[in-house]
């Protein structure tokens, strides 16, 4: 059994780009759902719009890299306004329905044949990340066996990614200890009460939707740049649901909840997968029970069981306060 390989892939999943992408998506979702109580089920759309904003600007229209970043950020803001303005005056469930539908519409637009001239259709777009990697200050990778073996490109992605995660956490931390954050949390509890105290609830909800969307869009940039490609089906509902899982695992309305949630979630997925495959390889699990191809599905079953146990025994997540969660039951 190759323990070195298991340790290496597991460790790389802890610090890897996937954890970064999902941490950023979940930090944005935390602003929406954890702090403001907005049921956004279309977080994948914010990542997708940002990723495609960058990729299309550079590849399709030949614009500079930083213009592409600007287009992506603007796209996230416009999407937040498009989703929020018609729905945020209505009950919370409307936003959930509209966001999940909008996210699917956007994904289908990206992969539609008639737009493939600009979006690349279901193949997506490539060759937009050269400027990003040209900024890479590392001349060589890092190799500390058995923990890590990465080239300089991966190292550059991780550096930028974790800086973005740290910045996002800092912004959320600063905002949520301010009177602005207090209004958001109050809206989560009861928006009529907040209205009765003279606050423009609609405006705060729009602000929260934009902030969470922009934070999520940073995850979209990292997704596109780390893969050096965009592909429409990676921005599906699965991404949103994983982000929710991560948020609840880490603890909603906690600054570091989404980060720790993302790290643990991807560690478990990768570790269980690697372990199962190795166990099959050495014959500890007979192929009559499971073959290597099935291991990928079994890991989700096991992680799902684990999450169910978490919700039963620790509903507040890792960082949450059980007393606080129980107040809801009253």
């Amino acid at each position: 059994m190759d323990w070195n390989l298991i340790i290496q892939v597991s460790f790389e999943s802890i610090i890897g780009s996937t954890a970064i992408i999902y941490a950023l998506a979940a930090i944005g979702l935390n602003v929406h759902f954890g702090y403001t109580g907005l049921l956004n089920f279309g977080q994948s759309a914010f990542l997708g719009v940002a990723a495609y904003g960058l990729a299309m600007s550079v590849t399709t229209f030949g614009l500079p890299f930083w213009v592409g970043i600007g287009v992506g950020l603007l796209g996230a803001v416009v999407l937040a306004l498009l989703l929020g303005v018609p729905t945020l005056r209505l009950r919370a469930d409307y936003l959930a329905i509209v966001t999940i539908a909008a996210a699917e519409i956007i994904r289908l637009l990206f992969r539609s044949v008639s737009l493939s001239e600009w979006t690349g259709g279901s193949d997506g777009l490539q060759r937009f990340s050269d400027d990003f990697y040209a900024m890479n200050p590392y001349s060589q990778g890092i190799k500390i066996l058995p923990l890590i073996d990465m080239d300089s490109r991966d190292l550059w992605v991780l550096t930028v990614g974790w800086i973005l995660v740290a910045l996002a956490c800092l912004i959320v931390w600063l905002l949520m200890r301010s009177p602005w954050g207090r209004v958001l949390k109050a809206i989560r509890e009861d928006e009529d009460a907040v209205r009765s105290l003279g606050k423009n609830v609609f405006s705060y909800k729009i602000q929260a939707l934009i902030l969470g969307g922009v934070l999520g869009s940073l995850g979209g940039f990292m997704f596109a740049l780390s893969r050096a490609a965009v592909q429409p089906d990676t921005y599906g509902t699965e991404l949103t649901f994983f982000a929710y899982t991560i948020l609840i695992l880490g603890g909603a309305a906690r600054v570091f909840g989404p980060v720790v949630g993302a790290v643990i979630f991807w560690f478990l997925i990768v570790f269980i997968d690697a372990l199962l495959i190795e166990l099959i390889k050495v014959g500890a699990i007979p192929t009559a029970i499971m073959d290597p191809n099935q291991a990928g599905s079994v890991r989700y079953i096991l992680v799902g069981v684990g999450l169910m146990c978490l919700l039963i025994f620790r509903p507040q997540g890792i960082f949450g306060d059980k007393k606080e969660v129980m107040l809801d039951a009253r």
Binding site: S178, P179, K185, A186, E189, D190, A193, L197, K199
Partner: peptide
């Protein structure tokens, strides 16, 4: 309509109007 998962003090502070920090 008490804001359940806010502290009593935060409930009170929310009531003040014209707060600069709400921008």
């Amino acid at each position: 309509k008490a804001l359940n998962r806010l502290t009593v003090m935060d409930n009170m502070l929310l009531g003040a109007t014209g707060q600069k920090g709400e921008n």
